[in-house]
């Protein structure tokens, strides 16, 4: 089912949580709302669910106005950040809850409920935990039970608030792949909120980057990563080095290397990712001279911190093989050349 969000605004006291948000979510899409904390992403998710009322604007579910539909009638599945499992109910009763609270006319029989719950528990691969209580489960198990519970009511939309936020790195990676596979099987329109760019880029069909209550950019993971629309998106999607430059006849310059800056005025800000910088031992007029001040081994990559005269400390990332071949050490003189860059007007 498609969702249209039209000119939604929401204010909490003095704080503008959402500012004129417009967004179309396609049926069957897996969409990520990405942004730093306080950017309004969770508020937007809660507005879609009906847990918050917008001050202005409209929400359409499948073309029908759902702005004033009570959360109870919206038929959404919501997975809370801390799962919000009913602590005094077994896993089975948690998943059955949405079916049991239905009015008598539409409530399935006890047999049907049993069958449905076991189907869902098998779907999340936790059928053997049916008689346990939430307190007896691990974080990853709780997360999957919360998902099964949300799916039990056959929602038209699945909304997940920081679904992997409270899990450790390894479990998180497993679960997000699992969620992606689940979505590919079920094709239910899903929206999840995250502050982790890696998670958004890996799992989602489309990423919506938010900042200060506004949407900065919306696009496929490749689009937002390769062609960030704003400096904010560029900075948020990975580490960056930042250079300031004057613009001469449409060209900005970093240490002798020129970059086209057609849209900038007479000053430009140039962003370069740490892995987009080349290093050399030989002095060159077209390169930035610096001295290696730190070497950090980060598994498959190595990160050097380089102090230059004109700029703040720069970060350069290179593969481990290259690092071992070139044997960089603290105190080495180095000449840097940016390979790629994004130029924005300052």
């Amino acid at each position: 089912m498609s969702i249209e969000i039209k000119q939604i605004s929401k204010r909490f006291g003095q704080f503008q949580a959402l500012n004129d948000i417009n967004l179309d979510i396609q049926g069957g899409e897996l969409l990520a709302l990405l942004g730093p904390s306080g950017c309004g992403k969770t508020t937007l998710l809660r507005v879609i669910a009906g847990l918050e009322t917008p001050d202005a604007g409209q929400i359409l579910f499948h073309g029908e106005d759902a702005t004033d539909t009570h959360v109870r009638e919206r038929q959404v599945g919501f997975v809370f950040q801390h799962y919000a499992l009913f602590r005094h109910m077994t896993v089975f009763e948690n998943v059955a809850f949405g079916l049991r609270v239905r009015p008598k006319k539409t409530r399935p029989s006890e047999e049907a409920i049993k069958k449905k719950v076991h189907e869902l528990l098998e779907l999340v691969q936790l059928d053997w935990l049916a008689d346990r209580y939430p307190a007896q489960l691990s974080g990853g198990q709780r997360q999957r039970i919360a998902l099964a519970r949300a799916l039990a009511v056959e929602p038209r939309v699945l909304l997940l608030d920081e679904p992997f936020g409270a899990l450790d790195t390894k479990v998180r990676k497993e679960l997000r792949r699992w969620l992606r596979r689940l979505h590919d099987e079920m094709h239910i329109t899903s929206v999840f909120v995250t502050h982790d760019q890696e998670e958004a880029l890996e799992v989602a069909d489309r990423v919506v980057v938010m900042n200060k209550g506004r949407i900065e950019q919306s696009g496929t993971p490749a689009e937002v990563y390769d062609a960030p629309a704003t400096p904010f998106v560029y900075q948020f999607l990975g580490d960056v080095n930042l250079f300031h430059s004057r613009v001469h006849e449409g060209w900005a310059e970093v240490g002798g290397t020129r970059f086209a800056a057609p849209e900038a005025g007479d000053k430009a800000v140039i962003y370069v990712r740490p892995h987009e910088i080349d290093l050399a031992r030989n002095a060159s007029n077209d390169a930035l001279a610096g001295i290696v001040t730190h070497v950090r081994l980060l598994g498959a990559t190595v990160r050097l911190e380089v102090k230059t005269d004109a700029h703040e400390a720069l970060e350069v990332e290179l593969t481990r093989e290259r690092y071992q071949a070139e044997r960089w050490a603290v105190g080495d003189a180095v000449w840097l050349t940016p390979r790629e860059a994004r130029v924005y007007g300052a």
């Binding site: 959360v71 109870r72 801390h82 919000a84 009913f86 949405g98 609270v101 239905r102 949300a150 039990a152």
Partner: peptide, 13 residues
């Protein structure tokens, strides 16, 4: 009030 909200989303009065 997370559990109450969860109950509401699941359709409970």
């Amino acid at each position: 009030s997370d559990e109450e909200q969860a109950a509401m989303v699941l359709g409970a009065s």
